[in-house]
């Protein structure tokens, strides 16, 4: 599927960060971009909307990215969802936990459109 036909869900509690990720995704020709402010809000979106890719931050109030990932993988409907975790250099080690929980891939902040594209190529069939 071409990026422009895919629906991406950005999950981050920081509005500015969501806008940055949105900009970078736009650069890669993504057009359908939805935002959620934490894991719980993301689950609500996933319940009602068909999403093709989740780009989620790790540390959020109410429900973290890891908890969201586990919910997604535990759901029959969503378990194959491409799920990209955004992490900080200092918290990179935690990614092993996310890998165990079947994260599709991860990306370290700050990242560029090129790095993101590289990661997406690994997890989203085009």
């Amino acid at each position: 599927m071409a990026y422009k036909d895919m629906t991406v869900l950005i999950v981050d509690d920081f509005v500015t960060m969501r806008r940055i990720v949105r900009k970078i995704l736009r650069d890669l020709d993504f057009e359908n971009i939805i935002e959620a402010e934490d894991g719980l809000a993301a689950l609500e979106v996933l319940k009602t909307t068909k999403v093709d890719l989740v780009v989620s931050d790790w540390n959020m109030p109410r429900m973290t990215g890891l908890e969201l990932l586990k919910e997604v993988r535990g759901s029959d409907k969503l378990k194959d969802m491409p799920f990209l975790m955004v992490t900080a250099e200092a918290q990179k080690e935690n990614i092993v936990e996310a890998v165990k929980a079947k994260v599709s891939n991860y990306i370290v902040k700050p990242f560029t459109a090129a790095t993101l594209e590289e990661k997406l190529a690994k997890i989203v069939p085009r």
Partner: peptide
């Protein structure tokens, strides 16, 4: 709750 904002601010500042 204190950790999180520093974390987010750092993230955006990096960008």
């Amino acid at each position: 709750a204190v950790f999180r904002p520093f974390h987010s601010i750092k993230g955006v500042a990096g960008f």
